[in-house]
Amino acid sequence: MSRRGKVLFLLATALMLARTDFWWWDETFQPILFGWIDLANLYHIAIWVAGYVLVYFTVRLWGEEEGK
């Protein structure tokens, strides 16, 4: 695997660790968005978006490796 590929999977590992927000797991949040989404929900949405970005760069990498 190329160096860029290894970096992408290292970032994926970091994201997999960061997804467990244990530091505020027991805290109580109130909805802050549309009356039903709280900060913890927003954090997890951000993790999903970051993961999607990693998928985008992985697809680009694969395309370049294939020479297309």
Binding site: L8, F9, A12, M16, R19, N41, H44, I47, W48, G51, Y52, L54, V55, T58, V59, L61, W62, E65
Partner: peptide, 24 residues
């Protein structure tokens, strides 16, 4: 609600990355 990130914040994006790792 914690049931949704229980699945989605890893599987939804990590699985496509494994498609690359294994599929290629």
């Amino acid at each position: 609600w914690v049931a949704w990130p229980y699945f989605v914040t890893s599987w939804a994006w990590m699985t496509p990355m494994f498609f690359y790792l294994l599929g290629r």
